[in-house]
């Protein structure tokens, strides 16, 4: 080692600012960057429009279930659901799914494994904000796909939709809550890729349970009472079934508000877990590649 290097090694290191960016600074940075992130996200969504539409078209499970249950209900209502009820239910289910879809877990998992997460970490913006903006930027295209579903819903099942203004006023915050739960769970599982080699398998497990317990495939009213009680406390219901129950007029005002509070409590809980896990996981990031 040269003399210069040896002398430097003996010198005391200069004092440093070792504070992390505060929450308020992070939020301000996210707020300021949001329009730019949104614009870039929309540009990406438009660039990948064909892929996006094909992906949307694969989200057709509610239509398959609609055909199945409508056939069953022709001989009489099933647990109080007539054929028209099933039509309203599954078209709303499809709409909710299209509007609240999210893909962040695959992106995070790939970026952590390949090391490209480095590029996000170099920017003065929490990666969760960037992921959220990129996912939400697809919303205008999603709304475009959801419009014909809404038209079908109004044409074929308008009498099954609630006419209560409060229910419709709560619909958007409930959709946002549903999207946030999906996003945060994906962020939690994606962050686990910092601890294990791949977290996608874990997410597939969550997804398969969620398909059943969220009401996406089967209305929760059709479940046995014990399972129904379980779904009342698990987070899955709040991602799909709750907004459907709301617009189909199956919830009283008080019950809707109570469930929405529970939904947002889940949002807060998952948010805290996601951020805590991210902080812990980041020190394990290998920044492989390059």
């Amino acid at each position: 080692m040269s003399a210069q290097a040896q002398s430097i090694a003996r010198e005391p290191i200069s004092s440093a600012d070792d504070r992390e960016t505060s929450w308020t600074e992070s939020l301000r940075a996210g707020w300021r960057a949001w329009p730019g992130l949104w614009r870039a996200g929309i540009a990406s969504a438009v660039a990948y429009r064909a892929e996006f539409v094909i992906w949307m078209l694969t989200t057709n499970m509610p239509l398959v279930m609609l055909a199945l249950w409508s056939a069953v209900a022709r001989s009489g209502p099933v647990a109080g659901y007539s054929s028209a009820d099933f039509t309203a239910y599954y078209l709303t289910s499809l709409m909710v799914r299209v509007l609240t879809g999210c893909w962040v877990v695959w992106e995070m998992s790939m970026e952590i494994r390949s090391g490209t997460l480095s590029l996000r970490l170099l920017r003065p913006l929490h990666p969760f904000v960037a992921y959220a903006a990129e996912n939400l930027a697809a919303f205008p295209l999603r709304a475009l796909v959801a419009t014909p579903i809404l038209v079908l819903l109004v044409v074929f099942a308008h009498d099954k939709l609630t006419h209560d203004w409060l229910a419709w006023a709560l619909f958007l915050p409930m959709l946002l809550g549903a999207w946030l739960i999906t996003f945060l769970v994906m962020a939690i599982v994606g962050t686990l890729a910092l601890f294990m080699e791949s977290a996608i398998g874990l997410f597939q497990l969550w997804l398969s349970v969620s398909f059943v317990l969220s009401g996406y495939l089967i209305p929760l009213d059709l479940f046995p009472p014990a399972l129904r009680q379980l779904t009342a406390v698990l987070p899955f219901r709040f991602t799909v079934s709750l907004p459907i129950e709301l617009v189909l007029g199956r919830l009283s005002h008080a019950h809707a508000l109570e469930l929405m509070a529970a939904q947002w409590a889940y949002v807060a809980g998952f948010g805290v877990v996601a951020l805590w896990l991210w902080r812990r996981g980041l020190s394990r990031f290998g920044a492989f590649g390059g």
């Binding site: 940075a29 300021r32 960057a33 949001w34 329009p35 730019g36 992130l37 614009r39 870039a40 540009a43 990406s44 660039a47 990948y48 090391g115 490209t116 480095s118 590029l119 170099l122 920017r123 003065p124 913006l125 590649g289 390059g290």
Partner: peptide, 23 residues
């Protein structure tokens, strides 16, 4: 060996994005 430019968009889009992020 790693790039921050968005692959399917012109570099000017990434420039604008960085303008927002770096304020």
């Amino acid at each position: 060996q790693k790039q921050q430019l968005m692959w399917d968009l012109p570099p000017s889009e990434t420039f604008l994005l960085n303008r927002s992020i770096y304020d």
